[in-house]
């Protein structure tokens, strides 16, 4: 299955990755190969198998509504590339 350039562009946009034209060409080949590889799974007959959404098989794992400790502000912000007055800072985005 060959992915088109448009499909690669769409996936890149959804993943928030800026790709050059060469990269789009390169990845459409690579991604197509990956898809072909994964596609082998389709040869297995799963018509009688329930889908697995959660490997633990547990249900209703819930916690009581109690407040625990949070991180101090400095620690919460320590890996941010830019901070200001206790806020994380990112380049301007428009409010949606």
């Amino acid at each position: 299955m060959k992915l088109t350039a448009d499909q690669v562009k769409k996936v890149a946009k959804l993943a928030n990755l800026p790709l050059s034209d060469e990269e789009i060409e390169k990845y459409s080949g690579q991604l197509s190969k990956i898809l072909d590889y994964i596609d082998q799974l389709n040869s297995a007959d799963t018509s009688e198998v329930e889908p697995t959404f959660n490997v633990t098989g547990l249900s209703n794992v819930l916690r009581e509504d109690k407040v625990g400790e949070s991180l101090p502000q400095e620690e919460a912000l320590q890996n941010a590339s830019q901070v200001k007055d206790g806020f994380f800072v990112t380049k301007g985005v428009f409010e949606e």
Binding site: V89, K91, G92, V93, E95
Partner: peptide
């Protein structure tokens, strides 16, 4: 989010 002076502040 707060949009201030060309940047976005996040809480």
């Amino acid at each position: 989010l707060s949009h201030i002076g060309g940047v976005t502040l996040i809480d």
